[in-house]
Amino acid sequence: MDYFIELFFSGLTRGSIYALIALGYTMVYGIIGLINFAHGEIYMIGAFTALIVSTVLSIYNMPLAAILVLTVLASAIWAGAYGFTVEKLAYKPLRKAPRLSPLISAIGMSIFLQNYVLLAQTPDFLPFPPLIPEFAFMEPVSGVIGSSELVILTMTTSLMLLLTLFIKFTRLGKAMRATAQDRTMARLVGINVNMIISATFIIGSGLAAIGGLLIASHIGQINFFIGFIAGIKAFTAAVLGGIGSVPGAVLGSFILGLTESFATGYVSSDYEDVFAFSLLVLILIFRPAGLLGKSSAEKV
């Protein structure tokens, strides 16, 4: 039973990281119907920004909590700026182009950002400082769930709640939903669609950066390539839950994380990806739009 709980928590941790990245994919897809393949790289840039900022801050002997908060803010804002710029440079000019063009542009952006960090920073693995402290009250259960896992879970859950409330109740959130439903109609009723799209990219990128920071602090290392695998997995999770749907991305991420964890624990980690992708295939056979996705009729 203990073993089951341990695997459950490790699956939840994985799932919540996937969720933070998957939200960016799904929000962007919901609004402009684009798979933003550069999103994994934003996650990586968020982690690098966090490394730089936290190193600088720790020189000033700040308390760990202050460093954590400031680092989260700085990397979310910096990654948001990257998301905003990427959209303006690579996607906006192609908004009226055929669907494949922005997709290729996204892949190009992903390769560009990877190589940019490779050249500007380093190709080596870098140690990432533990920004999340080891809490004393977690000591008795540290074998089952560690402090960083607890922080990742609570932080992810609260961010999701905030995001849901934001989309449901604020003016900007309502405008986002309107744009997602019908871009032309939204513009007609006076919504600044370009601004909404930019806001979506910024929010998605900020969440991904926080995910990057949390997981880097949890595993203690980063390099320029970490965004690739994390991005692919999060994209899978978004498709699993129904791309375009915010609760779907969260659900898909947790299902993917738990499947991987239990497959590793009870079968073999050799087959962890086999199980994860078999599940994806099965779900897409029975629900082609994903778990919570709505299969929209062709707009004529």
């Binding site: 490790s10 990281i17 896992e149």
Partner: peptide, 20 residues
Amino acid sequence: YEGVTPGAVDYSAVVQKIRR
């Protein structure tokens, strides 16, 4: 006797398995 996927975000499941 297990193989892990290089580059995965987290290895805690394998680590639990080693402990068990």
